[in-house]
Amino acid sequence: MALPRVGILADDRLQQHLLKSALVHFGFDVVINTDPLRFSELDAASDLDAWVVDVREDADEESLDWLDDLLDGEIPVLLGIEKAPQKQCPTFPKWEKRLYSKLRELLRVTPVVAADASALASLQDRGGPEIPLPSVFAGHDFRSQPATQVWVLGASLGGPEAVKKFLDALPGGLPVGFIYAQHIDPRFEQTLCNTIGRHSAYEAKNFAENDVLRCGEILVAPVTNEFGFGDDGRLKQKNRPWPGPYGPSIDQVILNVAEHFGGCAGYILFSGMGNDGAEAIVTLADQDIQVWAQSPETCANASMPESAIETNRINYTGDPCQLALQLVNCVKHSWIEKHEPISDQN
């Protein structure tokens, strides 16, 4: 499907740049990006799906004739955009999401930001060797134990392939549980669950009220409604849709997991379109909390990891197999620190 074609008219060069950057991140084809005073010179406007207009300077009535022409045309026009914050500002991801949500309301066609059945059908079987289980876990069986260390795996377009490579590379027997938040059509939620755990040492499962996430399990986050955790760690339905334009909201999954697990959680953002996850990770004030991203050059779509990297909150980047190896080493060192302290030699 062709990308929706958008034209930007903005009288501020920085705003032009930030608008284009955000729209490209969300999968729009920005074919015009110029000052509104040049509107009369444009001849390719008939092919557009929408105009995005931002005028900051005071203008007299005569100089706004171009806007009257624009509004009288057949192409939808998005007006009233708030000024973009700097890219490094913590509120920039929220601004991007609001822009995307407004365009979604305006257009009948928006970019595909979620995986679908074809993405799941194309997933390959295990392609590489499994990482050996560290010897410190030999003789332990964590499978029936509630997970006290949890990793959130966030992904969108291109995510299923990357996450499956990551999971297939992990050895069984690690004392961790996973929550997989994947933007996907709700019709394929069960298919995702059936597919992502195939050939993995970890068992994928769907959300069930009052269930407990155990070591060795992958909870596939529900697409439609938000969930959280009770004081006893059991899964609780919040009986409301996920906030924002996506389901599930990776940002909200991160916030809910951080609220319950605190420093015992980690986060990995994989391939995807958009910026979901970037807003939440900047709220993780404890720099010891690990937040990783798939390296952009290995992504089917790099927008989501790039947005996360731009927040300067990412501790590590790598391809799916490198991320798996990093996780094994991280879990091993965490276990050694807690269960095998170095004795005082003095």
Rank of each mutant, 00 (worst) to 15 (best):
F137L: 00
P305L: 07
E306F: 07
D319Y: 07
D344Q: 15
Q290F: 09
D288S: 15
K205Y: 01
K87H: 10
D58T: 15
R198Y: 13
R126Y: 04
G159H: 01
L170E: 05
A45G: 12
H17E: 12
R98I: 05
C330A: 13
K97G: 12
P129Y: 12
F227Q: 02
E61D: 15
E74M: 07
K205H: 07
E310G: 03
Q145C: 08
L323W: 00
Y180R: 11
Q15F: 13
V176H: 13
I218T: 01
A147K: 13
D344P: 05
D251C: 01
G80C: 08
L106E: 03
A201W: 04
D125I: 07
F188V: 08
V253F: 01
N346H: 12
L167D: 09
I184W: 06
P4T: 11
A115M: 06
G7Y: 05
E217T: 08
G158C: 11
G266V: 08
P245C: 06
D58L: 14
L78P: 05
D65C: 05
L192Q: 00
A50G: 10
K332T: 13
V152C: 04
A204P: 12
W66H: 08
A302R: 09
P171Q: 12
Q322E: 15
N315V: 10
A324F: 09
N210D: 00
I314D: 03
P134S: 07
A300Y: 11
S156I: 06
Y267T: 04
E226I: 00
L42W: 06
G277K: 00
A162R: 01
R234G: 05
P222C: 12
R214H: 12
I81K: 02
A59E: 02
